[in-house]
Design a protein around this nucleic acid. Structure first.
Length: 864
RNA sequence: GGGCGCAUAGCUCAGUUGGUUAGAGCACCGCCCUUACAAGGCGGGUGUCGGGGGUUCGAGUCCCUCUGCGCCCACCA
């Protein structure tokens, strides 16, 4: 055992402890995963890989702290903790960052330029027009930028004191992640869980890619109803009695109109079903049809069906077997050539007016023309309505028919949907009501998971297609790489049995140009981190994992995607428990988000209050609860750390009790018995992922320990009542303090390690978790409340008399029930010393009543 | 339209299967340099537990209902 006195600093301080202990932990491998541990000895965590681009956010500190408290708890109780970290660096977020930082954009039609150098590195002028570069050049730039970003980001994350094993670091664009992602996809393909389909798809015209249902958001935006007249009589050119009137918010799609629709029971329109009407301006005959989705209360009760204005149009188009007259292309503009379904001279002339325009311009032009012909009635009536956007997008999604890859997720298959619902039900959710979001999402799926993206910096879809005699792709004639060749980039590698000069040639092949959605890779984080593709021994020790920590907003993406992949691949859940943390709200209770501009960066906070104090704030946030940013809580955390330093110094300062000394005094034994209750509660709370409760219980106990218990026994510990009594107090103080430090260790890793080092060998973080059982029956906790109550009464009397707490009490009379008096009697001498009480009289009564007679003099002789 | 969460002191929040007089910290006020800590300690005031109804010997807690706030989802013409 180290020499106690020499290890305790004269003036304990929190300053600089982070750097000191982080270095030590790194050197000692304190958080290294022991890969000889078997699955039941392992606690495996599927840590969220943050986007390394950009800066660290206070929300990272918040949720990563929550996970870390659980990791540290499990480690202390003897588990080998598998605690990896990764950077989610593939995908559109990185592409955008690279565009913003370097001033380029990707144009895959361009050839590779080996000598290309990015025009900027950071400060791109506002009026700069992005320079188009080839795909290989662009991807190479992406790698450069994320490499730099990740170096910076790692240093920031390390500053948080999270007990991750840095040797397990992965990236979602890394070779292992790409192999994992491609192999899982090929397995899905082989089992029929992945398929391609040419169908109307929600498409972002700015990013030029399809997006998945999970990445769409509704935004309330201004729009306007336009009342348009469709003509029932062939000779009618302007609005008249015979016209069929509709309301539309998207008059620019008029040229794509394929039919009109009303509810089958709508008496106003029953007679028209089966007839045709002629569209305004373009003079195209379209049928009037009946469908139950038509809402008689909306607009005029008749809608025009366009290919495609919204997802209802898609439904109608499919169910009513309508032709496709799509005009908005991948660039978001109206087709340049006048379509052949517009046949009249007037119609074709009208279309020429809008050819090549973006939707908004086209709308303006169409309205202008309609007003001229009198086919629009009245003014547009402004409304606000929900419109689908890509969650990162700035213009509404359009619907474009394209060939895409999908993974089955129950969106089109009731049986699979139910299986996945059951998986979600089997997962233990913390807090449990978060399951509702999963259920809600799975229940509301309306299609399979679209995983292909027409982007560049991602995991390529590892497939080629044979080309026919004219050089056109035979999408059903898929060429699949052997597992051993993964990861492959089909745009640079050629399929087995072909040579590179057959690329793009008739009878040759072409690579799939798309990459996979970033979630298609990150849904495999347990597989990537666990070495599914290249380390089956490791994978068997960690999978299925124990804990998936994440925020509630990505249940529909990351969590659900992971469940889908694991269900398909292994027929099980990827983890047993999902710990869902909330968001950080700013002081006005708005969500902190980069887009809102109210983000707090944690570094200054870590510097001002210390990592432990910031963690204290984070750990005070209830699981799943959105929590207000509160620097006040950090101050309290700082105070708590300081108190722990001082209390430890004081307790150790009494000196070490002799070997074999055990708590014998009733008060000391009661203390340990109460501590057993705290251990028990804290353990149960952490077992249930309720770190906040565990911290609160430990903290409340600690302050009581300092304020009452230490004050009561410090005289005795100094030896005022003799050696045996002193040894009992010292033994109890040390035992309690040791356990308190252990109970705090998951929350305040630095200060606990600091004080632990003053009298113990090794790290507190591998010192084991305290057991309640040996202490539980040591003493009688019921002693403690009466003693605290009397102590408070004495203090109150002194305060009310405006005396120092050192003032002497002449006489303390206590009336109370026999059990209470017995409790006080057991601690009589400690109470008398702590309160400076000369005479201490008790008598039996129904209720506890304390009377304090103070010595009038406040001079220094009042001290004992 | 469907679902979920929240509402307790001026502020941030605890309050476990219903159980004495509803708690903590911050803030505020007062006292105290006391042999760990003045960047500290001790003590104090503060509540229609969102409104209404019900179950119960007993409701902050359970049930119904209403209101407000937030979030998720939905076929949004």
């Amino acid at each position: 055992m180290p020499d106690t006195a020499s290890n305790i600093p004269d003036k304990p301080s929190l300053d600089g402890i982070e750097a000191r202990w982080m270095q030590r932990w790194e050197g000692d491998g304190t958080y290294d995963f022991d890969r000889t541990a078997t699955r039941d000895e392992v606690f495996a965590i599927d840590t969220p890989p943050p986007t390394a681009s950009g800066s660290l956010h206070i929300g990272h500190v918040f949720s990563y702290t929550h996970t870390d408290t659980i990791a540290r708890f499990q480690r202390m109780r003897g588990k080998s903790v598998f605690y990896p970290i990764g950077w989610d660096d593939n995908g559109l977020a990185t592409e955008r960052r690279v565009q913003n930082v370097t001033g380029v954009r990707c144009d895959p039609s361009l050839p590779f330029d080996p000598g290309f150098v990015a025009p900027f590195n950071g400060d791109v002028p506002k009026d700069h027009r992005a320079i188009p570069v080839s795909r290989p050049n662009f991807v190479s730039l992406c790698h450069d930028v994320i490499h730099d970003d990740e170096q910076v980001f790692e240093q920031l994350v390390r500053r948080l004191g999270i007990s991750i094993d840095w040797s397990l670091l992965y990236t979602t664009i890394g070779q292992r992640a790409q192999r994992t992602s491609q192999l899982a996809f090929l397995h899905n393909l082989a089992r029929g869980e992945a398929y391609q389909q040419d169908a109307p798809t929600l498409y972002d015209i700015d990013d030029r890619t399809a997006v998945a249902q999970a990445e769409m958001v509704d935004r309330e935006v201004p729009g306007a109803y336009h009342k348009l007249a469709f003509h029932r009589r062939a000779d009618d050119g302007t609005a008249g009695d015979g016209d069929l009137l509709i309301d539309t918010t998207r008059p620019e799609l008029l040229a794509s109109c394929v039919a009109m629709v009303a509810h089958p029971n709508d008496d106003r329109y029953k007679a028209l079903f089966g007839t045709t009407v002629r569209t305004p301006l373009f003079e195209v005959e379209v049928p009037v049809l009946a469908h139950h989705l038509a809402d008689p209360d909306k607009g005029t009760g008749v809608a025009m069906i366009c290919t495609f204005g919204d997802t209802t149009d898609v439904t109608w188009w499919r169910e009513l077997d309508l032709p496709s007259r799509a005009l908005i292309g991948f660039d978001g503009r109206m087709a340049a050539d006048t379509p052949d379904w517009i046949t009249t001279g007037g119609g074709r002339a009208a279309y020429e007016q809008i050819a090549g325009l973006a939707p908004k311009q086209a709308q303006r032009k169409i309205v202008e023309m309609l007003l001229e012909t009198g086919e629009m009635l009245g003014e547009p009536r402004p409304i606000t309505h929900p419109v689908k956007y890509y969650e990162r997008g700035s213009r509404p999604l359009e619907i474009v028919a394209t060939r895409q890859w999908y993974i089955r997720n129950g969106g089109r298959d009731e049986a699979l949907r139910n299986e996945l619902l059951h998986r979600g039900q089997d997962l233990r959710w913390h807090p449990d009501y978060m399951f509702n979001r999963y259920q809600n999402w799975v229940g509301g799926l309306n299609g399979d998971w679209l995983i292909s993206r027409q982007r560049f910096f991602g995991v390529p879809i590892p497939l080629w297609y044979r080309l026919d005699g004219e050089g056109l792709p035979l999408y059903d004639d898929i060429l699949i790489p052997d597992d051993g060749r993964l990861p492959v980039d089909p745009s640079t590698v050629c399929p087995a049995g072909f040579t590179e000069d057959q690329r793009g040639k008739p009878g040759g092949f072409m690579g799939d140009p798309d990459v996979m959605d970033t979630w298609a890779t990150s849904s495999l984080t347990p597989h990537i981190a666990g070495g599914w593709v290249d380390d089956p021994d490791l994978f068997a020790r960690v999978f299925p994992m124990d804990m998936r920590p994440q925020a509630h907003d990505i249940i529909r993406t990351w969590l659900f995607g992971s469940v889908v992949r694991s269900h398909h691949e292994h027929g099980c859940l990827p983890w047993t428990d999902a710990a869902i943390s909330g968001w950080i709200l700013d002081p006005d209770r708005k969500k902190m988000a980069k887009s809102v501009g109210n983000v707090v960066t944690p570094l200054p906070l870590l510097q001002e209050y210390g990592t432990d104090a910031v963690r204290y704030w984070a750990a005070s946030g209830r699981p799943g609860a959105d929590t207000a940013f509160d620097a006040g809580q950090m101050k309290i955390g700082r105070k708590l750390g300081t108190k722990l330093l001082n209390a430890t110094k004081f307790v150790l300062g009494f000196g070490e009790p002799p070997d074999g000394a055990a708590p014998t005094a009733a008060l000391d034994k009661a203390l340990l018995a109460r501590l057993a209750e705290v251990i028990d509660e804290s353990t149960r709370a952490l077992d249930g992922y309720d770190y906040a409760r565990a911290l609160e219980r430990t903290e409340a106990f600690f302050w009581w320990f300092c304020d009452d218990y230490v004050e009561l026994v410090k005289g005795r510990a100094y030896g005022t009542q003799g050696d045996d009594e002193a040894h009992s107090a010292r033994a109890a103080l040390r035992r309690a303090l040791e356990i308190i430090v252990q109970l705090f260790a998951p929350f305040l890793p630095f200060v606990t390690e600091e004080v632990w080092s003053w009298w113990r060998e090794g790290s507190v973080h591998s010192s084991g978790w305290p057991a309640a059982a040996p202490l539980a029956s040591i003493g009688d906790v019921s002693l403690l409340d009466p003693v605290s109550e009397v102590l408070a009464a004495v203090r109150r009397a002194k305060t009310e008399a405006k005396l120092s707490q050192r003032a002497t009490v002449d006489r303390l009379t206590i009336e109370g029930p026999a059990v209470t008096l017995a409790a006080l009697e057991a601690c009589r001498t400690d109470l008398a010393e702590a309160g400076g009480i000369n005479e201490f009289v008790t008598s039996e009564a129904a209720a506890l009543v304390t009377a304090v007679t103070l010595t009038p003099s406040t001079d220094s002789t009042a001290a004992h």
